[in-house]
Write a protein that binds this DNA or RNA. Structure first.
Length: 264
DNA sequence: ATACCATGAACAG
DNA sequence: TGTTCCTGGTATC
């Protein structure tokens, strides 16, 4: 399931496999309105990701906006699609080099560049984008009385961080989630930004969220072995110190932290 | 067959 | 703050 690293990986795949070609566009599930008919046969010009959003720019200023939400997924078939689509397929994009099927998205809308800009205007900097502006993130949280655990999940503060990276980024910096943005030190704010950049990039590279440092992996976890993925997220005990993990509902999402490594 | 759960977010009030 | 919408994998009857 998708945080920002997943979306950037999908964008890269779509870029590589689908851009530059006229695509067959269909909606096997039939729930894409007239979008499929409008896009069918158009050339895909470029693909862009920002946080958890993806835009596919087709010729003629037709822009497909996709947000996977909690359940959405892309299934890509470089060798050609299976005869029967798997599950409920909202959109199928088919080109000479491959096919990709979208199911379960929170958003799948056809618009134009202005619509795209309107979405971007609501988003904070994306740590994965080269044009990201860390100062926006730092200034916003430096002024905020809201808990840093809420700020990291707020896509208008930083785009692409979800529940797993929230938990892990706070952990590696020893920050209790309920401390407010303004009461953090400048060094802590900067370190948090650096951490989400590093963790998200690692996620793009590997396709998994693995935040536990190699030096803290069990020695048996060599090549191929999965090793430990997280320090606190969905864990019973802290991977670093063994203290029972605190877990509570924070604005409707589970929040995980180590009471010992992340003192309040 | 059914229940429950999840890495998300918009909307109402 | 609570409700609603997406889907599908796993657990439970």
């Amino acid at each position: 399931m998708p945080e920002g690293h997943t979306i950037h990986r999908h964008a890269a795949t779509h870029r590589r496999l689908l851009t530059g070609h006229p695509l067959s566009v269909s909606s096997p599930q039939g729930r894409f309105g007239d979008g499929a008919a409008v896009l069918d046969g158009r050339r895909l010009e470029r693909v862009e990701a920002w946080g958890k959003h993806e835009w596919l720019w087709f010729e003629g200023d037709a822009v497909l906006h996709v947000h996977l939400g909690l359940f959405g997924r892309w299934r890509t078939y470089p060798a050609g699609p299976p005869p029967e689509p798997r599950g409920q397929v909202r959109v199928r994009l088919h080109g000479p080099l491959g096919t990709t099927d979208l199911s379960g998205p929170t958003a799948c809308e056809l618009g134009d560049p202005v619509d795209r800009d309107a979405v971007v205007a609501r988003l904070g900097p994306d740590p994965l984008r080269p044009d990201a502006d860390p100062e926006r993130f730092l200034d916003t949280i430096a002024r905020s009385r809201r808990a840093i655990g809420l700020l990291l999940m707020d896509q208008s503060v930083v785009a692409g961080v979800g529940n797993v990276y929230r938990a892990e980024a706070l952990f590696v910096n020893g920050i209790w989630p309920l401390r407010t943005g303004r009461e953090l030190g400048d060094d802590e704010r900067l370190a948090l930004w650096d951490t989400v950049v590093r963790q998200l990039r690692a996620g793009v590279r590997s396709g998994r969220i693995v935040t536990v440092d190699r030096s803290e992996q069990p020695s048996a976890a060599g090549r191929g072995a999965r090793g430990k993925a997280t320090y606190v997220y969905k864990r019973e005990h802290c991977w670093r110190c063994g203290t029972p993990i605190a877990r509570w509902d924070l604005a409707g999402r589970w929040c995980y932290a180590c009471p010992s490594c992340q003192p309040a």
